[in-house]
């Protein structure tokens, strides 16, 4: 594994930086906790310390900083605290928790597995809609000059609107039609994921060169045959690249869609954590989402490798 070395080096570097950053980030909370435990801290009350800069606090209290990596509700929780939270809110919660799947027969609404599932289902539905729509639009754009000139600019404009501004409106509008739950989130996911698919597919469908098109012309092939025999197979590598971008965007869309609603999902979990100062909960949800995204992208990569192999691409 020649890949593992560089990756591991970067991870270790980030970890080292993270642990160092915990000291100044958490210095107020660390000193307050140390004071409660009976240590001598200068200045000797939290109000006075709030007036002093982080780095001078660190310099004045070099002996009492050991607690920087075990503070509760730290501004920046240490990586091991996040890992512990991840473990607690998945395995421990489901296996030992009163509401966990072992004791209650259904997933606990305090577990990341439950919230991850909520997000995942919206992501997958949204991605399917977005990718399908993206492919259809691309086919239209490639075959119709009118669509090329009318749809493409709007597709680009659509991506310039911040999704955080648009998401609540989509939810409210759909709610007024009695649609709530998974569908509004899937719509937001689709909104984000159709774009890379359109762009990639248009490029892919247009990738055959003039010679290839001339060759089909000499066979007197129609648009249909040109599409199925040449354009579509040529676009496959482009399609998979866009699908990888698209599925990651779908996950972001689903999470953003969960922020205003607060009915479960990793987005709700992150916002909930920030309401109650549960930084570990936010970070745990964040890493869980990142892990999910990585798995989804890897899954598409796996399908891509299999498809290209079947299409005879040299390994």
């Amino acid at each position: 594994m020649t890949k593992a070395g560089p990756i591991l080096t970067v991870v270790l570097a980030i970890m080292a930086l993270w642990y160092v950053a915990c000291i100044p980030m958490n210095v107020q909370e660390t000193l307050t906790a140390a004071e409660r435990a009976g240590a001598v801290v200068t200045p000797d009350n939290a109000r006075a310390r709030a007036e002093v800069g982080r780095f001078s606090l660190m310099l004045q209290n070099t002996d009492t900083l050991a607690g920087s990596w075990s503070v509760e509700r730290a501004r920046l929780p240490a990586p091991h605290q996040i890992v512990a939270e991840l473990w607690d809110s998945t395995w421990t919660e489901e296996v030992y928790g009163r509401r966990g799947i072992v004791n209650s027969g259904s997933l606990s609404n305090k577990s990341l597995i439950y919230h991850g599932w909520v997000t995942l289902s919206a992501t997958v539905v949204g991605f399917a809609i977005g990718a399908g729509l993206g492919v259809l639009l691309a086919v239209g754009i490639v075959h119709s000059k009118t669509m090329d000139m009318s749809v493409m600019p709007w597709a680009i404009v659509s991506q310039t609107i911040p999704i955080v501004a648009l998401a609540p409106m989509i939810i409210v509008v759909l709610y007024s039609f009695g649609i709530q739950g998974l569908i509004p989130k899937a719509v937001i996911s689709a909104y984000l994921s159709f774009f890379p698919v359109v762009v990639g597919m248009v490029k892919g469908l247009r990738s055959p060169d003039a010679m290839q098109l001339d060759l089909l012309h000499t066979y007197n092939a129609g648009q249909g045959a040109t599409f199925w025999k040449l354009r579509l197979p040529s676009s496959v590598p482009y399609l998979f690249t866009s699908l990888k971008v698209g599925i990651a965007a779908s996950l972001v869309g689903a999470i953003v869609g969960e922020l205003p609603v607060q009915r479960g999902g990793l987005g709700a979990r992150m916002l909930g954590g920030s309401y109650y100062g549960q930084t570990e909960q936010i970070w745990a949800a964040l890493f869980f989402a990142a892990g999910m995204a990585a798995l989804l992208v890897a899954l598409i990569g796996w399908i891509e490798a299999r498809t290209l192999k079947r299409m005879g691409v040299q390994a």
Partner: peptide, 27 residues
């Protein structure tokens, strides 16, 4: 007529047989 270009222009996703079959399928 059949036309042969400077580049072979075979479809990489088709076998040699599949490439020769291309005009036959279209026709």
């Amino acid at each position: 007529y059949g036309y042969v270009f400077q580049a072979a222009g075979l479809y990489p996703w088709r076998t040699i047989g599949g490439n020769i079959r291309l005009p036959l399928e279209i026709m």
